[in-house]
Computed example of a mutant assay.
Amino acid sequence: MKTLKIQPENVYLLRVFEKDRLSLNIGGNMKIGVLTLGYKTKIPIVVHSGLSKRWDKLFKPELPGIFVGFEVRF
């Protein structure tokens, strides 16, 4: 039986498009690439949700993972 593994990751994001409280972001780190939709809250935190995939499996026919995270803005 295959179980889900949750692994914390630090990723760098580039905001591609922003309108009101929503933003479209791309980014990653040395291990994974991510595509997220961000929602800016009233406090200085942005909640991100989207897709992630390992760079070494980017062009292989397997489904991407789900990415959920947050960004603290100063």
Rank of each mutant, 00 (worst) to 15 (best):
M1I: 10
M1T: 09
M1H: 14
M1P: 09
K2G: 08
T3P: 07
L4M: 14
L4T: 12
L4I: 09
K5S: 15
K5Y: 12
K5W: 15
I6D: 12
I6H: 15
I6Y: 14
I6K: 15
Q7P: 00
Q7S: 12
Q7T: 10
Q7E: 14
P8F: 04
P8K: 14
V11R: 00
L13I: 10
L14T: 08
L14D: 09
L14I: 12
R15L: 02
R15M: 01
R15D: 04
V16N: 11
V16W: 08
V16H: 08
V16D: 00
F17R: 00
E18L: 05
K19D: 09
D20W: 10
R21Y: 08
R21A: 13
S23C: 10
S23E: 05
S23V: 01
S23D: 04
L24K: 00
N25F: 00
I26Y: 01
I26F: 06
I26N: 01
G27Y: 00
G27H: 03
G28W: 00
G28P: 01
G28H: 05
G28Q: 02
N29W: 02
N29D: 13
N29T: 07
M30V: 09
I32D: 01
G33T: 07
G33N: 05
G33M: 07
V34K: 00
V34T: 05
V34M: 02
L35K: 01
L35A: 10
L35T: 03
L35P: 01
T36A: 07
T36D: 00
L37N: 02
L37T: 04
G38E: 00
Y39I: 05
Y39P: 01
Y39S: 04
K40L: 13
T41K: 04
K42R: 12
I43E: 14
I43V: 13
I43G: 13
I43K: 12
P44E: 11
P44L: 13
P44D: 09
P44K: 07
P44Y: 13
I45W: 11
V46I: 11
V46C: 11
V47F: 15
V47W: 06
H48F: 05
H48K: 11
H48W: 03
H48C: 06
S49F: 15
S49L: 15
G50F: 02
G50H: 02
G50I: 01
S52F: 07
K53H: 07
K53C: 00
K53Y: 05
W55Q: 04
W55M: 04
D56Y: 13
K57F: 10
L58T: 06
L58V: 12
F59V: 08
F59A: 11
K60W: 07
K60A: 10
P61A: 14
E62A: 11
E62F: 12
E62K: 15
L63P: 04
L63G: 13
P64H: 04
G65D: 15
I66S: 08
I66E: 11
F67K: 00
F67T: 03
F67E: 02
V68M: 15
G69Y: 02
F70S: 11
F70V: 09
V72M: 12
F74N: 12
